[in-house]
Design a protein around this nucleic acid. Structure first.
Ligand code: MN
Ligand code: MN
Ligand code: MN
Ligand code: MN
Lengths: 219, 219
DNA sequence: TTAAATTTTTAGACAAGGCTAAAAATTATT
DNA sequence: AATAATTTTTAGCCTTGTCTAAAAATTTAA
């Protein structure tokens, strides 16, 4: 069953939304990311449900089926491998590659992707630190990753920092963020991507996205 | 004015048909190459004429406008550069790259193509010997011609092919005819225009006129 | 526990890019 | 020059993926 660009984009976006929550994904959330109207999303969800790619109940939201998740992971794999290519081989900066990868992720050729993977030396993460799924759709278990990528309500341990400027490290100390601290994200603010963070079972505090990106955690 | 994949394909195919004739291009010829029905072609020609990409008169055939030709050359440039990439960097054979390049040629990013061009060391021809237009749409002047036009006992070098179907390229491989091969015609058979051909100083073999017409050589 | 606000779905429309069948124009053959 | 064959266009229909406006369901607030 052939899949269209539009369908691939919907699956990828549902996947992305699923990463940071366990709830079903809402029509409006999908509409916002696809840049379509909610009515259009409803229609596509009905069609993709027919095809068995998502489990969808009217008014109840949607989640990916096993097949849908595999398709989404294939697209994510392609997107991230192409991003590595663009940065390491073509000399783009990491902030310039996303839009081009949005196009390249739809190129259909399994053997091309395998060769690209080898050409890039089997990278485990893309230029933004995001993990690259293998052909089977399995994400490498990274021993550490940015706090900014930690899903809501999923406990982790602070194991490092991605930056060692004095001002940054002093701020961590002020926040009581030290190696070995038990962390849990309680809230993610759409507006500025700042997060509510519970540190060692205490009352949550707010930290900026800039800080969250530079704090490394392990599950 | 955004351009769709379908439109890009029509322009590219009209360009290709224009390469081997000075006449206007017929609806049926386009239908055959696009794999669409003539009625659909008529409709697209009318629309593309509106947009100023082709000059089209009902029943009289079509030809590219200056703008249309520039668009077509841009696509040809991308197609051929990606084919070089696939062969020289990804390790594909020359008969495996056309279908993938058909997809990659629609990726939209001028800067990506410029970087790719540099990454590949500014190739003048693709893996099939076809010239690669520069950004301005200018084709490098190559001095090759069909093997079928080579006189007896006059050494030449295989520098390209006039066709890149997989069956044809596979036949060449079987015959040990590859880019750079030293060729010399030892015999021409009046009856079917087949030729005796010495390849790299080996014992002569017979090849059909159809093959000889599609093999490009340089003195 | 109603009423109000919000979210989601339905209904109907539209553009792009295809198709088939029939009509019209062009070209080839007597 | 008339007829036959071929090519091209027109007319009408279809699917995909989008939209707006209105209706229905759900959630929030009074
Ligand atoms: Mn990206
Ligand atoms: Mn990325
Ligand atoms: Mn090609
Ligand atoms: Mn080629």
């Amino acid at each position: 069953m052939a899949i269209s660009f539009a369908e691939e984009n919907y699956l990828k976006i549902i996947y992305r939304l699923s990463e940071s929550t366990n709830d079903d994904i809402s029509t409006n959330a999908i509409a916002e990311l696809t840049q379509n109207k909610a009515a259009s999303v409803t229609d596509m969800l009905r069609k993709m449900s027919e095809k068995g790619w998502v489990n969808y109940q009217k008014y109840q939201g949607v989640r990916l089926s096993a097949i849908g998740e595999k398709i989404a992971l294939d697209i994510v794999r392609k997107h991230r491998l192409w991003e590595v290519f663009l940065v390491t081989k073509m000399g783009f900066n990491w902030d310039e590659v996303h839009e081009i990868a949005e196009q390249l992720e739809h190129i259909e050729s399994e053997v091309l992707i395998d060769k690209l993977d080898a050409f890039l030396d089997f990278p485990r993460t893309d230029p933004h630190g995001d993990p690259i799924p293998n052909k089977e759709g399995i994400l490498p278990q990274l021993e550490y990753f940015p706090l900014a990528n930690l899903p809501l309500a999923s406990p982790a341990t602070l194991v490092g920092v991605a930056q060692d400027s004095a001002v940054f490290l002093q701020l961590l100390t002020k926040l009581n963020l030290k190696l070995g601290a038990k962390l849990e994200i309680t809230e993610i603010n759409e507006f500025d991507l700042s997060v509510g963070l519970r540190i060692d079972e205490a009352q949550p505090v707010f930290i900026s996205h800039a800080v969250a990106k530079n704090v490394l955690v392990k599950r």
